[in-house]
Design a protein around this nucleic acid. Structure first.
Length: 642
RNA sequence: GCCGAUGUAGCUCAGGGGUAGAGCACUUCCAUGGUAAGGAAGGGGUCAAGGGUUCAAAUCCCUUCAUUGGCUCCA
């Protein structure tokens, strides 16, 4: 007998050689039906592999991320099986599970696949799935494996095999399809009940543009047809909320071919929204002891040589602008920090001045490859809600905590309640990528880890994702549709103060090096507003709305009254507009609804006589008539709701 | 940057070798209407830009620009 300990802490005894699936069955038949894979002593594996020793066991179903991954990876194999059945001479690259589904990179030879053939492939996959073929795992020698794929003529798998060690190679087979794969897989194809192939893309073999381009087929699959339907509805909803579409419809921003790609132009309504957002943070920062500054949009090339940015990014930046007479070289600023370092360094600093928190909504320009540009989330000109905190080393953690608190405050105020922090550390195996000593790196990394632990923040740690000058913490925000976005960032930097030779005179009357924190709670205004737009589907928090209400007179007889109400509301700091077009009330309501104006105030004979407004809420309908004072308190109540 | 797709009126899109179409929006007129589109008339396009083929190009070909789905990248 062996002891199996389960996640709930219980320990059960089983015969040696029992599988995770058997154990599930002993708990309940229903569970057994839903088990997709299992984690045995920390290793994720097939649910039907025999367990021979005492082990800790976790069963994965569709409700676990790892269960979904297994399911989708197995679906990729099913796709491959279908392709092999439908087309001749298909060669296979790799076919992993991804965040939402799976893909398989395939070489179809002369054939070009079109998405019109998707229904045919989906039908074949479902047909094969209904066979309930088991995913059979086989350990195989390298020699045999090579012989197999030589015979099949699949050079991609042969290349993958070259990198594998003998004794460590497994095949999986379901139906007639055999694939090199380390697994794990679901027990059989029968649980794949709904499949949708999503798109087609070219992808270079091994991500190398000098190598052959394969056809990548993206798909998603589910254990229930209903779940596929729900997923497709979610995608529709995401399309409706696309900030590029809403930005155009709500006239927030535009792009112009003549101005240039990746250069957003803020229209009046977008500017109103953005300005409110900026002022909100500016006010909050003043309360928290930040000092606003303004710096130029360009700086001499030497500035960026001093900071190290030129050496690191010079080639991939907008190239320097030169002055016609003197031949000086200037760069569009890609960062605000070098300018801020100059501000720190412009006079001798005492420890009594620290921490010094220099803030600027600084517009920066970064060359992004043309293929990377995307709406407001990936642009070539954007404004960071930037600040640099200069402090003594023993103030670092407290400052870091202060920034964590500010960022959390800001995100919550904007309705992002669901976020985690990603701590990005240096790749210990590739230290050449970074500048600065080991000692400084360790100090910085520890400060971040300790601060997040202190506030009990949920974190994920990624090695090799740090900036070249220091470790960082990025806020990963989940929006209303459950999609993850990276927004704000906090970065510890010991390097720039050194490169700029920044000092302060300590209580000991000696010069010391300050530590620097870069931080931007929104990240960039562009990206943040893009994400916020999608998060709230264009229905921004009331306090941010460019137009909080539309005043809709029943007929032009009441335009004067409407304007009178507008003036009264303006005095109460409530903003909106009068729709005085010669249109029927139904029409005015519809237009306001479509434009997502949060409050409609309808005024006609009755309201004018009683000095009232008939209130209607966007998306909800008639709320009833009220006097101006009553409306003011109703409005305040709505403001508090976010 | 690379591979694929796309670019026709302010917007959404149809058309397609023989001098441009719809709906919405816009303008004017009629209607003064009570909670999601009142009616009529009218204006508006070098069919992304440049080049080529052709008697003739918005349509076919090439180049460029832009958008877009991916790949690679992101201080």
């Amino acid at each position: 007998m062996i002891n199996i300990s389960l996640p709930d802490g219980s320990v059960r005894q089983y015969e040696k050689g029992v599988s995770a699936l058997d154990i599930a069955k002993s708990i309940s038949e229903g569970l057994a039906r839903n088990v997709l894979s299992a984690k045995v002593n920390g290793t994720i594996q097939d649910a039907n592999i025999p367990i021979n020793n005492d082990a800790s066991l976790q069963l994965f179903t569709w409700n676990d991320v790892d269960g979904k991954k297994t399911f989708w990876h197995s679906s990729a194999h099913l796709l491959a099986e279908a392709l092999e059945a439908l087309y001749d001479n298909v060669k296979f690259g790799i076919g992993p599970a991804i965040e939402n589904g799976f893909y398989y990179d395939v070489d179809l030879g002369e054939k070009t696949l079109s998405s019109e053939e998707f229904p045919k492939i989906e039908a074949k996959m479902l047909e094969l799935a209904r066979n309930k073929n088991e995913y059979i795992r086989k350990e195989i020698s390298k020699e045999e494996a090579i012989a197999f794929f030589k015979e099949k003529g699949d050079e991609y798998k042969l290349e993958l095999l070259e990198e594998l060690e003998d004794g460590n190679i497994t095949f999986y087979q379901q139906g007639d399809f055999v694939d090199l794969c380390k697994g794990p897989h679901i027990p059989n194809t029968g649980s794949i009940k709904a499949i949708k192939l999503m798109s087609l893309a070219g992808a270079y073999w091994r991500g190398d543009e000098n190598r052959k381009q394969l056809t990548r087929i993206y798909g998603v699959s589910f254990p229930k047809a209903k779940e596929l339907k729900e997923y497709l509805v979610l995608l529709e909803e995401a399309k409706k909320r696309d900030h590029r579409k809403l930005g155009q419809e709500l006239e927030l921003f535009m792009f112009s071919e003549r101005v240039g790609s990746g250069l957003p132009i803020w229209l009046p309504k977008g500017t109103a929204l953005r300005t409110r957002l900026e002022n909100f943070l500016k006010d909050e920062q003043v309360k928290r002891g930040y000092t606003p500054v303004i710096t130029p949009h360009i700086g001499k090339k030497e500035l960026y040589e001093t900071s190290g940015h030129w050496q690191k990014y010079g080639e991939d930046s907008f190239q320097p602008i030169n002055t016609p007479k003197e031949g000086e070289l200037f760069l569009l600023k890609p960062m605000n920090c070098p300018h801020h370092c100059e501000i720190y360094g412009h006079k001798p600093r005492s420890y009594k001045e620290l921490p010094l928190r220099i803030a600027e909504f600084g517009t920066v320009y970064r060359y992004e490859q043309s293929g990377e540009l995307h709406g407001l989330t990936r642009v070539r000109c954007f404004t960071q809600d930037d600040a640099h905190l200069f402090c003594m080393p023993d103030q670092l953690k407290e400052e870091f905590l202060g920034v964590l608190d500010l960022t959390t405050f800001v995100l919550k105020k904007l309705g992002f309640d669901n976020f985690t922090a990603q701590i990005s550390l240096r790749d210990p195996g590739n230290k050449d990528k970074y500048i600065g000593s080991d000692e400084l790196w360790e100090k910085a990394e520890n400060a971040i880890i300790e601060a997040t632990q202190e506030v009990g923040m949920e974190t994920v740690t990624e090695l090799g994702e740090a900036a070249f000058y220091g470790p960082k913490l990025d806020f990963m925000v989940k929006d209303a549709l459950g999609r993850s976005w990276q927004l704000g960032t906090i970065q510890v930097d010991y390097t720039l103060p050194e490169r700029f030779n920044l000092e302060y005179i300590g209580a000991d009357n000696q010069a010391h090096r300050p530590v620097m924190i870069h931080r931007a709670p929104f990240g960039s205004m562009e990206r943040f507003i893009g994400v916020l737009t999608e998060h709230c589907g264009g229905k921004f928090p009331l306090w941010l709305q460019p137009e909080q209400y539309a005043l809709l007179p029943i007929s032009d007889k009441f335009n004067d009254y409407a304007n009178d109400v507008k003036n009264q509301l303006a005095a109460l700091d409530i903003r909106g507009f009068v729709d005085d077009r010669n249109e029927k009330i139904g029409r005015k309501i519809r237009d306001a609804e479509v434009n997502k104006v949060p409050i409609m105030l309808i005024v006609g004979e009755k309201e004018a006589a009683e000095g009232k407004v008939a209130v209607r809420k966007q998306g909800e309908g008639d709320v009833g008539a009220m006097g101006i004072d009553e409306f003011k308190s109703y409005f305040n109540q709505l403001l508090d709701e976010i």
